[in-house]
Structures are given as structure tokens and as C-alpha cells.
Amino acid sequence: MLLHTLNRSPATSRVYQQALAAMGPEDRLLLVEDAVQGALPKLMRYFTGLEGRLFALREDLVARGLEGQCDPSVQIVDVDGFVLLTEEAEKTVSWY
């Protein structure tokens, strides 16, 4: 199982498509920086098929005023959780 991180908003950059294409069936995706916009219910459609494997970084949501607006299916983790995700994954691939 690999961890993929994405830092670009799916509303602006198509790099999320490449991240999704390179993900294995067990791999996880963590949204960080501007990509946390993807946790909003209206933007969740970009990440269909990732149920239970989609995470967003809490402090990037909080900084943007978006913490209370997330889709309930996204798992919100703090930076400690980010490190934990990298511990659990064999390796991490960063998409930007």
C-alpha cells in the first residue's frame, strides 16, 4: 500500500487525474495545501472510487476556513496523522 499526496485543487489542475491513474487498488490519497478544496462535497466527484482511502490535512482545511465544510466521507487527519500515514505506507508519491 502506497500513500499519494496531492497539493493542487482539482478545480484548477488536472494533476489529480494522473495521481488517480497511478494509484493501486489499496493505495491512499491525502489532500494537502490547495488540494484540501477537493474535500468539499461539490468537488468530491473528482475522487469517486476512493471511499475509505481519501484523507485531508486538518490544518490546511482550518487555515482556509473549510474544516466545517467537508464531505463526511473524507477522513480528516492532523499532521501527526500525516506522519502516521507515511509510516503505514511502503512509500509516498507526491503529485503537484
Partner: peptide
């Protein structure tokens, strides 16, 4: 970009977790 701040934050956190 935010990346340097993100990296520094991640660095401090992994060290705090004993890595």
C-alpha cells in the same frame, strides 16, 4: 509556495514522533 512551510511542519512532527 506553501511547500517549505509544509515540509518544516512535517519534519518537526516526525521528529516529535521519535523518528
Amino acid at each position: 509556495n506553501q511547500a517549505s512551510h509544509s515540509a518544516l511542519r512535517f519534519a518537526r512532527t516526525l521528529l516529535a514522533r521519535g523518528h
